[in-house]
Design a protein around this nucleic acid. Structure first.
Lengths: 233, 233
DNA sequence: CCCCGCCGTCACACAACTGTCACTACCACG
DNA sequence: CGTGGTAGTGACAGTTGTGTGACGGCGGGG
């Protein structure tokens, strides 16, 4: 069974032929896929694309996949994203090294595309289960942009001021676009659950956020009996 | 003669002894200095610290300085920051390689601290002159001009006198226009965080600056619960 | 030595935010 | 069409965070 969200895969290899092939097949399988042929741009690209899975070639000219893996593991925004290595060598030594540096799986060339897709699916699934959605810095849904770094909300390009609680609430909803968030879940993640807060409080804050969203108030959809979710309008 | 702005230097070497030594001497010379002993954290650290100069050791275990340099040159936020290499080898080949990959200077170990400081100063100066990059010498926002070289603030063309602290505060806010600066961040970057200073002190200084900005006092916007930021009015 | 400007801190006033409530509107289901 | 339950709305008061004026300490210059 699929989750509602399209899973995103970043493929890094300095051979465009390989990335294209992978991209084609992964997109056939229903994933969103981004190719990157320049490993030097890895961090920027990964932070920007916010992948759910990264596939790295071990052998690249500028930077090896092993190094990229260690860089990712050290980066707070990327450290939890699962990684699959592509290796032409298939030697035991390489495999051990890869797994030690934090990879979650590896595949030796020549590999079957089918196998790669299957392994990707498994890793993403496992990761999605154990993990809350990664913390994103900037999210856009239908003309509404929320930017954590700038601590600002843009509605059709216009700056709208949210209070701290409203901001956390909207950000959480937008981060998990399409997925229903129960009131309890929102209380735990937006408020600090140690305090006893009425679930109806969530409703009030949703209302306040909707007011500020103006014409886009439908961005937050009510799911009767459960909670709320953010949707494309 | 020194400009009033404290120039910021990021030192990356996996030997803490070296970074500490450099930090000490560079800070004696009036720079603000951040050590980083783990090259894997390079991108995050550099983006966060926003240095005016980076000093990279060529020989490091996880990632070489050459690789860091190429990564920096590929990162939109870091590509204009000048780089000095530390190299123990001093071989011609290394030097050529370093300069080719985008370094602005190199120094061979064992090096004289004095020489390093001098070269740092030159590079920063050159960089500041030619650049309209992230850190400017002269910044204007809606009729308010702050010029660090002249140590002067113009409000609608009229000269307004700021104290040193006020100047650093306003300049930092204007440099990072639009981005919220937390009280803690301001304390670290405007004050020298050695002394324990109350966060409310920031408020008082903001108030003093606002007074001097007169009709433009709204240039500094309060972000409740977080800090302040400079905005277009 | 005193004077003066700058700085960090404090207490109080004030404004914004937040959680709750009561009431109303709406929906699902017999 | 009535009923039970859920969500939207407006108002309110307690809490929290920020603006403001004042004060004393410190250091440089006269």
């Amino acid at each position: 069974m699929h989750t509602l969200k399209t899973q995103r895969i970043l493929v890094v290899d300095d051979e465009p032929d390989v990335t294209e092939l992978l991209k084609y097949n992964l997109e056939q399988a229903g994933y969103r896929c981004q190719e990157l042929n320049d490993p030097l741009l890895f961090v920027s690209a990964a932070r920007d694309f916010q992948p759910d899975l990264m596939i790295l070639d071990i052998m690249m000219a500028e930077l090896s996949g092993l190094q990229l893996c260690r860089i990712a593991r050290a980066d707070p925004l990327l450290k939890d994203v699962p990684i699959i290595f592509l290796t032409a060598k298939g030697e035991v030594e390489d495999r051990v090294q890869g797994l030690e540096s934090g990879a979650d799986d590896y595949i030796s060339k020549p590999f079957s595309i089918k196998e790669l897709v299957l392994r990707s699916g498994k890793l993403i699934e496992r990761h999605a289960k154990q993990e809350d959605a990664p913390r994103l810095q900037r999210i856009e849904i239908s003309g509404v942009v929320i930017d954590e770094e700038l601590h600002q909300l843009l509605v059709d390009g216009e700056n709208v001021v949210l209070t701290a609680t409203e901001f956390r609430l909207l950000k959480l909803l937008m981060e998990r676009k399409g997925r229903v968030q129960s009131r309890e879940h929102l209380l735990v993640n937006v408020w600090n659950y140690d305090t006893d807060i009425e679930t109806r409080t969530v409703d009030t804050h949703v209302r306040r956020v909707r007011e500020k969203l103006g014409a886009h108030s439908r961005l937050i959809e009510t799911v009767r009996g459960v909670g709320y979710r953010a949707v494309d309008i």
